[in-house]
Design a protein around this nucleic acid. Structure first.
Lengths: 141, 141
DNA sequence: CTTGCTCCTCTAGTCACTAGAGGATGTATC
DNA sequence: GATACATCCTCTAGTGACTAGAGGAGCAAG
């Protein structure tokens, strides 16, 4: 039923040292140990790990995840906080998408413009050199 | 004509300690100094700084910028390398946009689904808990 | 019994900055 | 000329979220 840290890594997609790191910073509870001092993870911890991994993939910071996990542990509590975190995060994500889309246009411009000739004519360099050619003026991240 | 490090910071949008850091890692050449040992930047260095800033904003890593700067210094050389860097970066950016768009859908789903009730029914938590609800399977960054 | 894998702890490194200490210099005002 | 304050200098250490490596112990298969 319970698995080793390697098994947990395979089951969750989180690397072994990262699992230990999460334990160290208190994102994961201190796990059971075998007699030989090896970590043992129960299904519940694996779920927690997957939760963390998913949230990290979605770009939530560790501190936000800490809050989400604390919320998760109190299912009767109002989800106001989780909602707020998700909303804030959504805004951030939308800003990032806008910024990356501008960048994408610019990069496409660059590689289209590159005539595979000499550097002097290459838009990749030119575009980076002259911000005024850039698609996202006055934008900040 | 030449400006102090503070002036360079204002002109380029790169912070003073960051300029010194760039010098330290060899991204900027060692600048001239006044008699009182203060750095002096000529227009050329300011251009270089803006180039770096722009490239960093666009998400290029310092090592990539180092390469781009080296290329820029040899305008007669083929721009193959710059082209390759830009293409690679474009791919990365497109993956990131796709990933963030999926995330955006998911987060919108989350906050829409949130009935402002108990955590137990909150999609924000639920969605993070169950990767199968997630919009971007099998995607990797 | 040996080989090879996984596990343990611990420290240090990564990237791209950022912050702070402690001191020198430059500029503006009284 | 004195004083105040901004700006500059160097240097060290801290950040977030890991990642790598040293040095050693345990375990299962052949």
């Amino acid at each position: 039923m319970d698995v080793s840290i390697g098994g947990a890594a395979r089951a969750s997609g989180v690397k072994v040292p990262t699992i230990r790191y999460y334990e160290q910073i208190g994102l994961l509870p201190v796990p059971q140990r075998t007699q030989a001092n090896r970590r043992l993870y129960a299904p519940q911890e694996l779920r927690r790990l997957r939760f963390i991994r998913h949230a990290r993939e979605l770009g939530f910071e560790v501190e936000a995840i800490r809050t989400l996990l604390a919320l998760q542990d109190r299912p009767d509590h109002s989800c106001e906080e989780a909602d707020r975190l998700a909303r804030e995060h959504l805004e951030q994500v939308e800003r990032r998408i806008a910024s990356l889309s501008a960048l994408r246009r610019e990069l496409m411009h660059m590689v289209e413009g590159c005539s595979h000739g000499r550097v002097a004519q290459c838009r990749v360099i030119e575009t980076l050199d002259d911000h005024s050619l850039c698609a996202h003026h006055g934008e900040s991240e």
